[in-house]
Write a protein that binds this DNA or RNA. Sequence first.
DNA 1: CCATCATCTTTACATTGTCAAGATACTTTG
DNA 2: CAAAGTATCTTGACAATGTAAAGATGATGG
Lengths: 193, 193
Amino acid sequence: MSDNYHHGDLRRALIDAGIKIINESGEAALSLRKAAAMCSVSHAAPYAHFKDKDELMEAIKTHITEQFTSELSAAVKGSSDAESALVDMGRHYVAFFVRRPDYFKFLFGGQNITAHIRFDKEYENDYPPFVLLKETYLEYIQEGGYEKTPEEQETELLKLWASAHGLAAIACMSGVEVPFDWEDKISGDILIR
Amino acid sequence: MSDNYHHGDLRRALIDAGIKIINESGEAALSLRKAAAMCSVSHAAPYAHFKDKDELMEAIKTHITEQFTSELSAAVKGSSDAESALVDMGRHYVAFFVRRPDYFKFLFGGQNITAHIRFDKEYENDYPPFVLLKETYLEYIQEGGYEKTPEEQETELLKLWASAHGLAAIACMSGVEVPFDWEDKISGDILIR
DNA sequence: CCATCATCTTTACATTGTCAAGATACTTTG
DNA sequence: CAAAGTATCTTGACAATGTAAAGATGATGG
């Protein structure tokens, strides 16, 4: 394989390059041409793998979301009971983004968030972190033997999610140096009580 | 005043044009040159009023935030007691953005949100909507004669804000046609209980 | 009236997204 | 295995955009 003609896995390399740019210089600095240059390919090479810049950004978002979900998943698995799993999950939800505010801005900032976060009244939502939250919540309900109508469950779930997500949003967009014990001090109280 | 040389109030006209572009075509379509064209001035004319594109966007954000704050303020004034004022405020907080999701994306989406939303551990925050929330909350505390430590107050305030803001974020970024009774059904339960 | 300043225009340039045409390697098929 | 086809990559081009520089135009104060 001639070394500089066919790149090994350009698609993956472009995603990595994009993530690196976002981490180092923020979303505004992300350009197709720069990512291509970092992979030592011509400026039009990305078009063999992505229809346009949006498609690269979608791929990056999917990648980050997988990382996010797997961290949440690990947090849940480490908990003894479902209630503490819920709290741990909220804690890690916020912590993940507090540690990487640029990820939050990139994931939920831009225009095309459609594919990554959904909630409608039919209660349908395949956003992986939400699916995980829902599962954990249902275990929590079952474990505690609580009697809740579907409406109550939906409301409570949304509340949990909105609290964590809103907290992350406020933290990531505040422009303030967030002290790292911030979430430890607060999220436990807020997310469940 | 020669009609097309010195524009009457170009600064204001550019802000209006920018808002119109955002409303009609989203933030991605906002360009200095397009805004200038809508004001029938040359593409470099905006530089007499704004240092760069960011400064125009900041001005637009400030303008929208003023509108937002004044709607919240009106909602609070229409309430009988402080507790219902709190609920009404939350309802309007969400409703304002559900009605104008592009505003939410623009205000809290981009990179440079620093000046528009702040929260740090010293409890300092001059973001006007938050100031209003804080005032209303303090009245609510006083009215009910509740005894709360500063820490409890800070936590509760942050919780109120995060709930409303997170709800708005989820609604505006869901890509789902949000039914308009959505906030009526939910926010009251979530924001205070 | 003149100098100064704010406002606006014209020109120019670099960056970027995107397209088109062609070259090169890999894959499939006859 | 050779021919045909496909995926991948290059080069070249273009339009949109942000921005800087230099100059023109009108207002304003001494």
